[in-house]
């Protein structure tokens, strides 16, 4: 029995989302549809308030759209009940946030191990995975350090290690270089590239940094809930 492996990882179908802001209802996304292929490195750009973070949240399964469907690897995550969605996130998505969001009271090792505690792996197996992830991001020697003892760039790399330790299909990154200096940002971005090229991870990255976006392989531009290709990207971002 052969399983048909489609090249499409994410299918977004007619997704709408609105927010209540100070008594008013603002429609951020309306009827959005697009695909993300397996192995893509997609950059999402747009002015603030355009809904790019909202879209990212929807793709990652931490928010639900008001209408429409999102299929990730064939599974419609918009109809999953909350507990199943949590389980899905644990195995299928890796997160990289702007402010790292590491647990200050856990060591780098323990932070990276955190998602693995949601899996049935044994202690020894977990330890091996964590060591491998930390080696990958070049921080094996910092495993016992607490986040407060690490620089911003190092913290973000620990966060990346955490994001990939469960070998997820999808990695979402929300302004991953937003709080970093130029050098650290470059390190983080090349790391992401490596994950994409060498390990075939599908990455969706939201950023408003043009230089960061250049590391992505494709760029989509979100404005007033409308998605467009990056052809006239340079023109728009200058504006």
């Amino acid at each position: 029995m052969s399983r048909r492996v489609s090249s499409t990882l994410i299918e977004v179908r007619g997704v709408s989302k609105s927010y209540r802001r100070g008594g008013q209802v603002v429609a951020v996304l309306h009827g959005l549809s697009f695909d993300v292929q397996r192995g893509d490195f997609l950059g999402l750009m747009g002015p603030s308030g355009s809904g790019k973070s909202t879209l990212l949240n929807l793709l990652a399964g931490i928010d639900k759209p008001d209408a429409g469907a999102i299929l990730v690897d064939g599974v419609d995550i918009t109809v999953l009940p909350e507990s199943d969605l949590a389980d899905w996130r644990a195995t299928s998505v890796g997160f990289v946030f702007q402010f790292y969001n590491l647990m200050p009271v856990l060591t780098a090792f323990e932070n990276v191990e955190l998602p693995l505690t949601l899996t049935p792996l044994s202690r020894r197996e977990r330890r091996e995975h964590v060591a491998a992830a930390l080696r990958l991001v070049g921080l094996a020697d910092r495993a016992e350090h607490y986040p407060s003892e690490l620089s911003g760039g190092q913290q973000q790399r620990v966060a990346i290690a955490r994001a990939l330790v469960t070998d997820p299909k999808l990695i979402v990154a929300d302004e991953p270089t937003g709080d970093l200096d130029r050098q650290s940002a470059a390190e983080v971005l090349s790391l992401l590239e490596q994950l994409n090229v060498q390990f075939g991870k599908t990455i969706v990255m939201v950023t408003h940094d043009r230089r960061a976006a250049e590391h992505a392989h494709a760029i989509k531009y979100l404005d007033k809930g409308e998605l467009s290709e990056g052809a006239d990207l340079l023109e728009r971002s200058v504006r």
Binding site: A60, I62, E82, S83, A86, D87, W88, R89, A90, T91, F95, F97, N101, L102, M103, L114, P115, L118, R162
Partner: peptide, 10 residues
């Protein structure tokens, strides 16, 4: 928020 995003339940 981060813990919930990682997959820990309420």
């Amino acid at each position: 928020g981060a813990l919930r995003a990682l997959g820990f339940r309420r």
